[in-house]
């Protein structure tokens, strides 16, 4: 009886040990890294959830999610092979590609541009044309592409002010208009006590400049040589996003865990808003089934504007650029 009990105990311990050691001993987990565009926030909630729910592990991956920040350019990191995957806007990726960095789009995540210009209602600006000659805060690099394209199209010249990450210049009325992301700065204004009806929003997507934003990129070589890893990573990530949209509080817990660990200046209400916004932006036109698809129309349009603005000499062909790792094999 006693011996039997001990045997049972020992065998149970063995099973537990086996389970614990399985991933390590199996050696099947492939280590990959993802470079985010910015610090931890709900903009990347799906990736966190995929990791926290073990979706990557199930896909045989051990993913390192690297936050971005000022001074970190994800595509540069990718180009120098310091990461396997990188997040980037489509426009920026096209510019990089045209500069000779052979990166490919594995999945287009944000289908709709979240970029907007905001103005206070009390400044006498009712349409974008009214910004002619006024101080407008613009972010640098590709963030400035759609506004400049729009201003050029409208034939106005604005006094461009280099805008940093905060909305303070706008809030202190140091600039008449500022660029803002729908999921971030637009809501920061609300959290700075500005009511929605106190500002007017100019949405670039509604002005024919829908620049698809966040997408997952890797180097062409990686895609060719480690296709399954790429597919596994992208699909596990998309599954993470689907779960995040279903169980948003769980996803927010994953977000806030990282926000708090990194001691970032943010709050839950803001992250909740951001996650809800992400759901709209990710599922715009494609729903949850075709998340990851890059619209050829959008690609053409972004190419056209970039060429017009002189960012690239000629459009980037889809066949070289679009890898569609998101598609189920």
């Amino acid at each position: 009886m006693r011996l039997l009990g001990k045997l049972k105990y020992a065998s149970a311990m063995l099973v537990v040990c086996a389970l614990l050691l399985a991933p390590a001993t199996a050696g099947a987990l492939t280590k990959v890294s993802l470079q985010l565009q910015w610090v931890h926030q709900a903009q990347f909630a799906g990736f966190y959830l995929a990791q926290d729910l073990g979706l990557y592990r199930q896909a045989g991956l051990e993913v390192e999610i690297r936050p971005g920040g000022p001074g970190i350019d994800p595509l540069s990191e990718l180009a120098t092979l310091r990461c396997d995957f990188a997040m980037s806007w489509l426009s920026e990726a096209l510019v990089m590609r045209s500069k000779g960095v052979d990166l490919v789009n594995l999945a287009q995540l944000i289908q709709r541009s979240a970029l907007m210009l905001v103005v206070f209602n009390d400044r006498g600006i009712s349409q974008i044309k009214d910004l002619d000659g006024r101080k407008v805060g613009l972010w640098r690099r590709q963030f400035a592409v759609p506004p400049r394209a729009l201003f050029a199209k409208l034939g106005i010249r604005v006094d461009e002010v280099s805008q940093n990450v905060s909305m303070a210049p706008f809030l202190q009325r140091a600039v008449e208009a500022a660029t803002a992301m729908f999921y971030n700065e637009y809501h920061q204004l609300y959290q700075a006590g500005v009511d929605r009806d106190e500002i007017t929003v100019f949405d670039f997507a509604e002005h024919g400049l829908n620049f698809p934003e966040d997408g997952v990129y890797t180097m062409e070589d990686t895609w060719r040589e480690r296709r399954q890893v790429c597919q596994a990573f992208v699909q596990a990530s998309l599954e993470g996003w689907r779960r995040a949209f279903i169980d948003q509080e769980r996803a927010l817990a994953s977000v806030m865990k990282r926000v708090n660990e990194a001691n970032l200046a943010s709050n839950l209400a803001h992250q909740r808003w951001m996650l809800k916004s992400m759901q709209q932006l990710y599922t715009h036109r494609v729903g949850t089934a075709l998340m990851g698809q890059l619209s050829p129309y959008d690609l053409r349009q972004v190419n056209r504007v970039l060429v017009e603005q002189g960012f690239i000499p000629e459009p980037i062909e889809a066949k070289d650029f679009v890898a569609e790792a998101w598609r189920q094999p």
Binding site: K135, V161, S162, N164, S166, A168, P169, Q172, R173, A174, V175
Partner: peptide, 9 residues
């Protein structure tokens, strides 16, 4: 901001 805002204003 400490430079930008007062400089602009």
């Amino acid at each position: 901001n400490w430079y930008l805002v007062p400089a602009l204003l």
